[in-house]
């Protein structure tokens, strides 16, 4: 019997935590951009499912697969924006509608085109030269697959766009006081369209990351509600990229820890272990959310002159 060293266990926990956080990061940062513009998109899970399916069909070329996932995300985003921005429908309900559409369509297409569960060659881990050789840190962070790197690069990128560009400023203005933004010549509708579409594209990439990098297969309802946890991570992270990354990593680390606790046979009941990530999220939420305020115009369709 080979005994595991404590270092190996810690590396194991953190390595899988980083990997598990990936789809949450894509989806939650996308949702954050959408919400900052004032559009609550609850259809993330549905977009992820449809994109995960679309990407799965293109596994001969993984880059093409990512492109397909992004295009599906874009189309779903346009649909969501059309319903919630142009038609000014209630966002929560249209988002749930979008989710059910994605769930139903992906299940139907899967049944008719693939039929049964199959595994594929997904993205394999790529060791980054030099950085990958750093003991401990390199093993955890720089020995992952490409979609994982992409997810973590998205965090500074989103921060830069939101805080350092004019478009980021417009986005926040549209989500906080659309009337003021409108009076200054910023097109509220167009900004919300773009934000919702970017958010949905990222949700699409989250789906592809799931089917091509994490599980390497597709099955009906593959996400099992992952998209909704991503939506919850947005207020958890205080509508900030760094906060969302912290939230995603916290959730995935605790999940990874509970799996290791079970594997190592540490005597806690499995039911309690499975509960841990959610329990901790609720506790953390109780201490953080009350101090941050979300976009004031979130969930409110904009009508010129309605104020």
């Amino acid at each position: 019997m080979n005994e595991l060293t404590t270092t190996a266990i810690i590396i194991g926990i953190l390595y899988s935590a980083v990997r598990l956080a990936t789809p949450y990061l894509y989806a939650a940062i996308g949702e954050m951009i959408s919400e900052i513009s004032g559009v609550l998109n609850l259809g993330v899970d549905g977009i992820m499912l449809l994109s995960a399916y679309g990407a799965f069909l293109q596994t001969g070329n993984l880059w093409l697969a990512l492109l397909v996932a992004a295009v599906i995300g874009l189309l779903m985003g346009l649909l969501m924006a059309f319903i919630s921005v142009t038609l000014k429908a209630e966002q929560g309900i249209s988002g749930i509608g979008l989710y059910m559409f994605g769930l139903g369509l992906s299940t139907l297409l899967f049944k008719t085109t693939i039929g049964t569960v199959k595994t594929i060659e997904g993205f394999q881990p790529v060791k980054i030269p030099v950085l990958g050789d750093i003991p401990f840190v390199g093993e955890i962070l720089f020995n992952q697959s490409l979609p994982v790197y992409g997810a973590f690069l998205l965090v500074p990128l989103a921060w830069f766009i939101l805080d350092k560009t004019t478009w980021g400023l417009k986005l926040k203005a549209v989500g906080q006081t659309p009337a003021a933004a409108d009076s200054l010549g910023v097109s509220v509708d167009r900004t919300r369209y773009v934000a919702t579409c970017i958010g949905s594209i990222l949700a699409g990439l989250a789906g592809a990351a799931l089917s091509l990098a994490l599980v390497n297969l597709f099955q009906e309802n593959l996400t099992a509600g992952l998209g909704f946890i991503a939506v919850a991570l947005v207020p958890f992270g205080g509508w900030r990229p760094l906060g969302i990354m912290f939230g995603a990593l916290l959730f995935s680390t605790v999940n990874s820890v509970q799996l290791w606790l079970q594997v190592l046979g540490i005597g806690i009941p499995s039911d309690v272990a499975v509960m841990l990530p959610y329990l901790l999220t609720i506790v953390a939420l109780a201490f953080t959310v009350s101090r941050v305020r979300g976009p004031a115009a979130l969930n409110k369709p904009f009508e010129r002159g309605a104020h």
Binding site: L20, L210, L217, Q219, T223, A224, L259, L264, S270, V274
Partner: peptide, 16 residues
């Protein structure tokens, strides 16, 4: 060693 994911359908957690 045994792990239980608490779900019949969570493929991602089962993979992990």
């Amino acid at each position: 060693s045994k792990t239980w994911t608490g779900s019949f359908s969570d493929v991602a957690l089962m993979t992990e």
